[in-house]
Amino acid sequence: MTGTVLVVGGGPAGLRAAVDLADFGARVLLVEKRDQLGGAPVRWKYRSLAPDFTPTEEVMGPLIGFCESSPMVEVHKGSVVEGCEGSVGDFTVKVRNEADGTTTEHRVSSVIVATGFEHFDASVDPRYAYGRAPNVIGINELEAMLKEGRVVGHDGRPPKRVAFIFCVGSRDRSTNPWCCTVCCGVSIKQAIEMKQTLGDVQVYMIYMDIRTVGLWEKLYWDSMEKYGINYIRGRVGEVYYTGEKLLVKGEDTLVRGPFEVLFDMVVLAVGIEPGPGTKQAAGVLGLKLNEYGFIAPRQPNVHVDSGRDGIFLAGTCIAPMSIEETLSEGSAAAMQAAKVLKKTVAV
């Protein structure tokens, strides 16, 4: 019997679970594929988090700091889980360090899977010219620019006219048919930040539906009422680089009018999709993937329950979700792991 919990993935959900378990008095084995903790928000240098523009460090900093320094958390960076045997209360897992190839064995009482997501690679969909034309960027890349406080095109000049294209790699049968749930809110947040940073810029949001659910709605209202951001209902058929500017072709479905307007910069609201880490972890741990490649919980309304006793799920490896939900799921999964610990060892 062991008092350790394995957490796979060092992003928001995994970190939150690790911190809660360590606080609870359990030992945590935190395995992160990359060389850095913090997941997507840190890797892509998110400037702030929707809906309240909280700086990313404020949310992620304490979690990372705790895990890096706590004696209760054993962090394995640049490592992946390679094998898992046993059953609830007593799993034996193999962790391989990708850099030196060494493998270590550990006994854990339960496993929390929090392998997160990848941003959709827009170069897959040729109509947006991403990766081929300059000044076509993803919302993930714009975050870093906003963080630096320097939003400029490839020629070093700030854009005068920017289009955000929603639902890139989302809600499309040829790429990903699901809704990524957060990109509306994130794009709007960025549009506001862009206005704040550049001042003299016209921002156009080309959307099909605005899905700023819950309290995120305030972002949408503010962007329109306080910042004068323009909304055009429609979907873009093609972005064409003229050698100078970007010609965006679409339909304004509210007036049934074709528009072909030149922009200095196009920001693609790239969606959320399961990454290779999720697939790998699911394979090792014997978990089922759903038709889209996310991990399928036993019951779709109960995210934490993976369907295998002693293995729990948290965050965007299950479905697209916001960062506040992800953090809560981390805590929820920690609770499940704690229940296992209570049954098997006295803490």
Binding site: R235, G237, E238, K249, G250, T253, P258
Partner: peptide, 17 residues
Amino acid sequence: INCGNCTSMCPPFRLVD
């Protein structure tokens, strides 16, 4: 889903409603 992608690339739409 009424997205308008088809129309954004539709040739006669440039002349006719």
